[in-house]
Computed example of a mutant assay.
Amino acid sequence: MDQHPYEYADFTYGAYEPDDTRPPRRNRRPVVVAVGALVALLVTPVAVDRFATARVESNTAGAFQEGMRTPSLPEVHVRGFPMLTQLAAGTLRRVDITAHDIPASDTTGPLPVNRLSVHLAGLRKSDDDKEALARSAEATALLSYRDLSDTLGLQISQGSSPDQIRATVQLAPGADVTVAATVSVLSGNRIAFKNFQVTGGLLPEVGRTALTTVFERPIQLRNIPEGLRLRSVTATESGLSARLSGESVTFRSDDTSRDDSARNGSA
């Protein structure tokens, strides 16, 4: 008998074993845990440092508001990282403060400060916590024309040059006289008005005498931290911009410190 055309080879089926040549998967959980722990170690000090910075800024703002009698808390930014190192050393490397509407002291010739921006270097507290001392400071004070007008009793505005103001005097309805005066700095943190001249209208002699008396009296700044010295004053669109700087600048909570500062400056 002929062999069947379809024959099957004789072989034995064994147990199926998949041919997986890939390397075994590693357990990634320890790696994730390690990375998470490292991130936590890095983030936690940063969070603590930011919290400390916020506390320092808040306390500084409160102390400045109390000492300068501002109606609202000033803006305070403490620079430098880490904060905890600065606190441990007892000195803040740099502090920026911006305060608004600093009232004038109750003395002759008061002039409030509309805005005061102070950049302090090396700020530390005194041993009795009643003062804050800065190694050096630079500041810019804005004196609004409205406050300047109230102080001088004239309508003051910006002049034709950075060192000049303009005053308007109403002698009668429709009869205004405009005069100009040069602003300059005197010792003792005083602002002087010199070389006044009529720039429009007719000014009677009696009026000229009265204006001369007004402009001959300098205005003294008594409501700034002790140690700041007036360096220059410029007439801007918003008001007089006064630049101040100094070393060993002191912030105190009592009002008499500002009067003492003015007296020391004029000595």
Rank of each mutant, 00 (worst) to 15 (best):
D129I: 07
D127S: 14
P225Y: 06
F11D: 09
R252S: 08
R115F: 08
R231V: 11
A180N: 09
G109R: 12
V33M: 12
P204F: 10
F64P: 00
T182G: 01
T213E: 12
L84I: 15
N189G: 06
E205Q: 13
L120T: 01
F196T: 10
K125V: 07
L244D: 06
S261P: 00
T60W: 04
L38W: 11
D19L: 15
R146V: 15
E205V: 12
T108Q: 14
V214L: 02
E216N: 13
A181L: 02
E226S: 10
S105Q: 14
V46K: 01
S157C: 05
G246K: 01
L84S: 12
A52E: 10
E138A: 08
A15I: 06
S126C: 00
I156V: 15
V118Q: 05
Y6G: 06
E237P: 00
T12A: 14
N59V: 11
A242V: 12
A262K: 01
A235Q: 07
R69Q: 12
Q220F: 06
L221A: 06
I219K: 01
G174E: 01
N189V: 03
T213N: 12
Y13T: 09
V177D: 05
R25H: 08
Q65I: 11
V39R: 03
V48F: 13
G153P: 00
F196A: 11
G90R: 00
L186C: 03
P71H: 10
L42V: 15
L92C: 09
L142M: 14
R252I: 04
L87M: 14
I219M: 12
P82H: 03
E7N: 11
S105V: 10
R94L: 06
S58G: 08
L202T: 15
E75G: 12
S257Y: 06
Q197L: 13
V43T: 09
L230G: 03
D128C: 02
F193I: 04
D2H: 12
E131S: 05
P24C: 08
R263F: 10
V198N: 02
G227C: 04
F51I: 09
F81I: 13
D101M: 04
R26L: 15
A134I: 01
H100G: 02
S253P: 00
A192N: 07
E216H: 11
F51N: 11
A40R: 00
S157A: 10
R26W: 08
Y145P: 00
G246V: 00
V113R: 01
N223M: 05
R229K: 12
F251Y: 02
A180H: 05
D19E: 11
P218D: 05
Y13G: 03
R217P: 01
R28H: 08
D10Y: 13
V95N: 04
Q170G: 01
L142C: 04
R55L: 15
A139E: 03
I224K: 04
